[in-house]
């Protein structure tokens, strides 16, 4: 029995989501008493390998440095990983629940003829997991009957392990064969002054308390300082302060950033439905009884027109 975590990286940098996935692997490892290896598949990814070997609690870093996986093409990755899993008698394969992990994990699972379990938020035992369904409105406890478990791990559900204190051995793997089914053309980071609402790590949203559209510039100034996306409640959109595409909520965008700052938002349930999965929620509101304070991790009862400029200055 052994556990394999697939590292998320861009050939230069190991992504922090990997640390969260390793944390999930360690929870499993504690239950099963098995080792945890970390696979780095890429091209010219030596710096990633170095970082990976420093991740806490990893026994071996398995490295495949091949042109065929330079861009993480799943057609090439999946057969290679499926072979690796069988060769090494791996019982648990863990991916990050990222676009990359979700792209590859099911392909690996299908080649192994096993189910894949998505967006795991908790581990009960080696075959039983918790995962959200219905956009997080129900948590299912599922048990798999398959011998090999292929999981994607929701990073916000596990606190990442230390990425500097480990000392893993590096093991080189064979070359990855190009299946010649697909080719990489280009990749572009979306050029935007601000990150997109649904993918931003920090979101700052304004509600009816902003009083008009011009006042949203107060939010934008804070957002620019911390690289946050700017959102709005439906009340603010309905009142015509900002456009529809900024709406966070049941009928707008569903966001789950690490930090969500709700400013002048009362916290109607429609809004909560769109942001309640956020890791840390901050509420700034001058209404002591605003329902948003019931769900906020940090509540500041203050006049937003004073708090926002101060926030911008202090950050």
């Amino acid at each position: 029995m052994s556990i394999l975590v697939i590292a998320e990286h861009d050939n230069n940098q190991l992504k922090s989501a990997t640390a969260n996935t390793v944390a999930a692997a360690q929870k499993l490892s504690a239950l099963m008493g098995s080792s945890v290896d970390l696979a780095v598949l890429g091209q010219d990814c030596q710096s990633v390998v170095t970082q990976a070997s420093s991740v806490e609690g990893i026994d071996n870093v398995l490295v495949a440095d091949s042109a065929a996986v330079a861009h993480q093409l799943p057609e090439n990755l999946a057969p290679f990983l499926a072979d690796l899993v069988q060769q090494k008698a791996i019982t648990h394969v863990l991916f990050c629940s990222t676009a990359q992990g979700k792209n590859v994990a099911p392909r690996v699972a299908a080649l192994l003829d096993v189910a894949q379990i998505s967006e795991v938020t908790d581990i009960i035992d080696e075959a039983t997991f918790i995962r959200p369904t219905y956009a997080g409105n129900a948590l299912a406890k599922v048990k798999t009957s398959d011998p090999i478990k292929v999981l994607t791990i929701r990073s916000t559900a596990f606190d990442g392990v230390d990425m500097t204190s480990g000392a893993a051995s590096v093991v080189a793997l064979s070359d990855v064969k190009d299946q010649e089914l697909s080719r990489f053309i280009t990749e572009s980071v979306v050029e935007s002054d601000r990150p997109e609402l649904t993918s931003a790590r920090v979101v700052i949203s304004g509600g009816r308390g902003m009083q008009n559209g011009e006042n949203f510039s107060l939010l934008e100034s804070v957002a620019d300082k911390i690289g946050a996306a700017v959102g709005a409640s439906r009340a603010a959109v309905d009142a015509g302060y900002v456009s529809n595409d900024m709406q966070v909520g049941q009928t707008g965008k569903i966001v789950a950033p690490d930090l969500y700052i709700a400013v002048g938002i009362s916290g109607a349930i429609q809004h909560l439905a769109g942001m309640k999965e956020s890791k840390v929620i901050v509420a700034i509101n001058n209404d002591e009884e605003a329902p948003i304070f019931n769900v906020a991790d940090l509540s500041l009862h203050a006049d937003l027109f004073e708090a926002l400029p101060e926030l911008e200055k202090t950050l």
Binding site: P132, N137, K143, K276, L298, S299, L300, A307, T314
Partner: peptide
């Protein structure tokens, strides 16, 4: 099916957290 659903639960309600007195 390969997976059996043992139980389905409501997501835990968020508890209200800490009050802070100032921006700092």
């Amino acid at each position: 099916p390969r997976l059996s659903t043992l139980e389905v639960n409501d997501p835990p309600a968020r508890a209200s957290g800490k009050r802070v007195g100032s921006v700092v």
